[in-house]
Lab assay of single mutants.
Amino acid sequence: VSFKITLTSDPRLPYKVLSVPESTPFTAVLKFAAEEFKVPAATSAIITNDGIGINPAQTAGNVFLKHGSELRII
C-alpha cells in the first residue's frame, strides 16, 4: 500500500510517498515517516486530512482500508 504523508508543521507542506507491504505494522510507518521528515517519532502522530487520529497498533493495510492514502504527520 502507498501513503502520501504531509508534514503539517512546515508552512511549505512537504510530503513523502511511502510504499509498504500491507502487513507492515503502522508503528513502523510512523517511525519511518518521522525519520524522513527529521522530526522525533516519539512525539509524532499520524492523522487523517479530517484531523482524526490513527491508532498505530494496526497494520498498514488496515489503515489504508479505513482512512485511504492521504495522511498527515503532526
Rank of each mutant, 00 (worst) to 15 (best):
V1D: 05
S2Y: 06
S2G: 03
S2I: 06
S2K: 06
S2N: 06
F3R: 01
F3L: 03
L7K: 15
L7R: 13
S9E: 11
D10C: 08
D10H: 07
P11Q: 03
P11R: 08
R12S: 12
L13M: 07
K16P: 01
S19E: 14
V20H: 01
V20Q: 02
V20K: 01
P21K: 14
S23K: 11
S23I: 11
F26H: 00
F26C: 15
A28G: 12
A28M: 13
V29T: 02
L30Q: 15
F32S: 12
F32E: 15
F32I: 05
A33M: 09
A33V: 08
A34G: 03
E35L: 07
E35V: 08
E36H: 09
E36I: 06
F37G: 00
F37I: 02
F37P: 02
K38F: 07
V39K: 05
V39C: 06
P40D: 14
A41P: 12
A41R: 08
A41T: 06
A42W: 05
A42Y: 03
T43F: 05
T43G: 13
T43D: 15
T43W: 03
T43A: 09
S44Y: 06
A45R: 14
A45Q: 15
I46Y: 01
I46G: 01
I47Q: 15
I47T: 15
I47V: 15
I47C: 15
T48L: 01
T48P: 11
T48Y: 02
T48I: 00
T48H: 03
N49R: 12
N49P: 10
N49D: 05
G51P: 00
G51H: 04
G51W: 03
G51N: 10
I52W: 08
G53C: 09
I54P: 15
I54G: 00
N55T: 05
P56I: 07
P56R: 08
Q58V: 03
Q58C: 09
T59W: 03
T59A: 06
T59L: 13
A60H: 00
A60L: 02
A60V: 06
G61C: 07
V63Y: 02
V63M: 01
L65R: 08
K66E: 14
K66A: 10
G68Y: 01
S69L: 05
S69K: 11
S69G: 08
S69T: 12
E70S: 11
I73G: 00
I74M: 06
I74F: 06
